[in-house]
């Protein structure tokens, strides 16, 4: 749960059609979805991403369609963590279920900029900005969701329960 990478910032209300347009939803393959990550925002957006880079979102990140392909596309693009002002509800749940780390920071998001070099200690909720020397704290992960993460994700949780 320790990440280091370059930040890529997007705006408020980034919807899941922007994250992965419907025309790409004819597959469930993470790599293929990853190649088209953010294609609804800008063509070829993904070409700027190096594996391990970090996505910065504004308000209500992931609003709209419930497509789980959205967190899968972000992971498929090589991005393990999203830091945002706030997340849309369905996306937030999906992110955890898929193993994408989501950190909510509210207005503090303004202290993180496109291109910043960030280091993230997810369990401590610490986002260290090596470009500015600043540190931003995230809201704690809800206890119940941390439990699901601790049990290895929802799939493992159900596997135990359904057995």
């Amino acid at each position: 749960m320790h990440f280091k990478g370059k930040a890529h910032k997007v705006g408020d209300h980034i919807d899941t059609d922007a994250i992965i347009p419907a025309r790409f939803l004819v597959t469930t393959d993470p790599e293929e979805l990853g190649r088209n990550c953010m294609a609804g925002l800008e063509e070829n957006w993904v070409s700027r991403i190096n594996k391990g880079d970090i996505l910065l979102g504004g308000k209500n990140f992931g609003c709209g369609s419930s497509r789980e392909h959205a967190p899968i596309a972000i992971l498929g693009a090589g991005i393990p963590v999203v830091v945002a002002h706030s997340f849309a509800r369905i996306f937030y749940r999906n992110g955890f279920n898929m193993g994408l780390v989501l950190l909510e920071v509210g207005d503090e998001i303004s202290r993180l900029s496109d291109g910043d070099e960030l280091e993230i200690k997810a369990l401590e909720g610490k986002i260290i900005n090596h470009t500015t020397g600043d540190t931003v704290n995230s809201l704690p992960v809800p206890e119940f969701m941390a439990d699901i993460l601790a049990k290895g994700g929802l799939i493992n949780y159900v596997r135990e329960k359904a057995a």
């Binding site: 419930s66 497509r67 789980e68 967190p71 369905i90 749940r93 999906n94 279920n97 898929m98 929802l154 799939i155 949780y157 159900v158």
Partner: peptide, 9 residues
């Protein structure tokens, strides 16, 4: 609405 894995559960 939920995602596919919540729905599978």
């Amino acid at each position: 609405g939920m995602g596919s894995t919540d729905i599978a559960a």
